[in-house]
């Protein structure tokens, strides 16, 4: 329950309201190991603690990087931190994306908004062993073009590794040369073999609901669809009870769930 102290090694502005903190243990001890999809609890002195997904490794960072959107008191306080500042960290916690399961298969990654952050480590993991996976598609949607994260990396993923990257925004002005429409409409624009595809979806709950529907419509079976859930969370170790989603504790059974395991509760109002 007691955080370890970490130092901000680097602070990266990702978009108008989103930034990344690259962290290292203050006492110089080795970095914690983690699986793509896991999260840490970050503590800003005197303000509080929030669960933040690990969004790296990514080029030019030490590896323990967290991408944070400023939406409340704690994330605002984290945004105030400068390079060299200290924060508290507990973790890593939670389940991870099914990389092993995806080996030899096509992979469709669907991300909405900040939902790309916990999926970025998956992308780098797939790229490490590119030939072990079939078609890889990344479908990414945000509200507006200036909400897009990690834009510099798209071209590398596309060009060097042959990933089908489809970016779409909900609305844009005429300067935007890309797609406009909801992220689910991109599913029809990429090629994959539905019977041999693992889908990994992360974004707002409603977006995921429609993305799951569309993947099922394309013929991907429910046990090949993985998604993340989000609920209020205080302790991250199954004690506080806040993150319950039906029978699951999101902190320890999630945040990554196989769709068929939670579908009974997914979509029920106020669950």
């Amino acid at each position: 329950m007691t955080p370890s102290l970490y130092t901000v090694k680097k602070k990266i502005a990702e978009s108008h309201d989103t930034f990344s903190l690259d962290l290292a243990p203050r006492d110089g001890s080795p970095l914690i190991t983690f699986q793509p999809g896991q999260f840490n609890m970050l503590y800003a002195f005197g303000v509080g603690e929030v669960p933040i997904s690990i969004s790296g490794p990514a080029p030019g960072t030490s590896g323990l990087i967290h991408t944070i959107r400023e939406v409340g008191n704690v994330t605002r306080a984290l945004h105030q931190l400068k390079k060299g500042a200290t924060l508290g960290l507990r973790g890593p916690f939670g389940s991870s994306w099914p990389i092993e399961e995806a080996r030899g298969k096509d992979v469709v990654i669907i991300a909405g908004g900040i939902g790309l952050a916990p999926l970025r480590p998956v992308i780098y993991k797939l790229l490490e062993q590119r030939n072990q996976f079939g078609n890889i598609a990344l479908l990414y949607g945000t509200r507006e073009p200036n909400d897009l994260l990690f834009t510099k990396e798209f071209e590398i993923w596309r060009g060097k590794y042959g990933i089908q990257v489809k970016i779409t925004v909900d609305t844009a002005d005429s300067n935007w040369r890309g797609n406009v429409g909801v992220v689910t409409t991109s599913i029809a624009r990429v090629s994959f073999e539905p019977a041999h595809t693992i889908a990994m979806i992360c974004g707002p709950e409603i977006m995921m609901r429609y993305a799951v529907l569309e993947m099922k419509r394309r013929g991907v079976s429910e046990d090949h669809i993985y998604m993340t859930m989000e609920r209020n969370m205080k302790c991250a170790i199954g004690f506080c009870g806040h993150c319950q989603f039906g029978p699951a504790f999101i902190c320890k059974d999630g945040p990554v769930f196989r769709y068929d395991k939670v579908k009974h509760f997914f979509g029920i109002r106020e669950i």
Partner: peptide, 21 residues
């Protein structure tokens, strides 16, 4: 029933913080 919350508090100087369950 075991659910709990946490409260982060600071004193008036802002130099001392506590976390309560």
């Amino acid at each position: 029933c075991f659910c709990s919350t946490v409260e982060d508090v600071t004193d008036i100087t802002g130099d001392h913080a506590e976390r309560w369950q």
